[in-house]
Computed example of a mutant assay.
Amino acid sequence: MKPLLRWLGLVLLALAALQLFFVLRIAAMAVIDPQSTAFQRSEAWALRHDLRWRQEWVPYGRISDHLKRAVIASEDDGFVNHDGVDWNAIERAWERNAKAEEQATARANARAPRIRGGSTITQQLAKNLLLSGERTFVRKGQEFVLTLALEQLLPKQRILEIYLNNVEWGAGVFGAEAAARRYYGKSASQLSASEAARLAVMLPAPKRFEKAPGSAYLAGRTRTILARMGRAELP
């Protein structure tokens, strides 16, 4: 019995040390810009034989407010008000997914529906910064803990700044500055409302939309986000 208790104690100690490591890294991000994320390092390894990397950190004030509003309107319209997790959005996502599955089952030869999540900007940042791409309950639980830590240790503006400078916008394209120059040949501070809306719409599947810039869905969704941007609240 004692060896088992000792083993459990070591496991708990290791988990506590890991959480402390994560918390200290997040706390440091209040003043230190992260040089890379776990997701970026994974992508760099995948692209190692054809690595074309675009990324340039720009401070919050040098990112167009249009892009900030567009990303909030598209990805997380309650960003400034929630504590990191938007339970209403998660509930709506579950309802949409259940309805889509029912409709697909009712139609013969129907394609599997695209599953939609209810992740907030903070949750996406937590996942990309420090975690692997695995979809397990353990990883999801760790994401939840890191989300709460981000919200407690960093102001909303800093969370959005880090997110916009690290999120993927195509193969090897990370951050608002690289995306603005890749798709529009200008800096992130110069993006128009329509350009910002189009970039925001790309976020759920940037590599797919990078290859299909004339997508009807992309154009239609861009118009929808443009209409919503005026109501998006900035931190």
Rank of each mutant, 00 (worst) to 15 (best):
M1Y: 02
M1T: 15
M1E: 09
K2E: 14
P3T: 10
P3Y: 09
L4C: 01
R6K: 15
L8F: 10
L10Y: 06
L12N: 08
L13W: 11
A16I: 12
Q19C: 04
L20K: 11
I26A: 06
M29H: 07
I32H: 09
D33F: 03
P34F: 02
P34Q: 13
Q35R: 12
Q35P: 12
F39D: 10
Q40T: 08
R41W: 15
S42R: 09
L51R: 03
R54Q: 14
V58E: 11
I63C: 00
H66F: 03
H66N: 03
L67F: 02
L67M: 05
K68W: 00
R69K: 15
V71T: 12
I72L: 01
A73V: 10
E75I: 07
G78R: 00
D83V: 04
V85R: 05
V85S: 06
D86R: 05
N88P: 00
I90V: 14
A100Q: 10
E101G: 03
Q103C: 07
T105A: 12
T105Q: 12
A106M: 05
R107L: 06
A108M: 13
R111S: 12
A112H: 00
I115C: 01
S119V: 12
S119D: 10
T120C: 02
Q123L: 11
L125T: 06
K127C: 14
L129G: 01
E134L: 04
R135E: 06
T136F: 05
T136Q: 07
V138P: 03
R139C: 01
K140M: 08
Q142F: 08
E143Y: 12
F144D: 02
F144T: 09
A149F: 08
L150S: 13
L150R: 09
L150K: 07
L153D: 11
L154Q: 09
P155Y: 09
P155R: 13
K156A: 00
K156G: 03
Q157M: 04
I159V: 03
L160Y: 08
L160D: 01
L160K: 01
N166C: 05
E168P: 13
G172W: 06
F174C: 02
A178L: 06
A180R: 03
R181I: 01
R181S: 04
Y183E: 03
G185M: 05
S187W: 01
A188H: 00
S189N: 11
Q190D: 15
Q190P: 04
A193H: 07
A197G: 07
R198K: 15
A200P: 05
V201Y: 14
M202H: 15
P204W: 02
A205M: 15
P206G: 05
K207E: 13
R208K: 15
A212N: 15
P213F: 05
G214H: 01
Y217S: 09
R221L: 11
T222P: 11
T222W: 04
L226V: 02
L226I: 00
R228Y: 01
R228N: 01
G230R: 07
R231G: 13
R231H: 14
P235E: 07
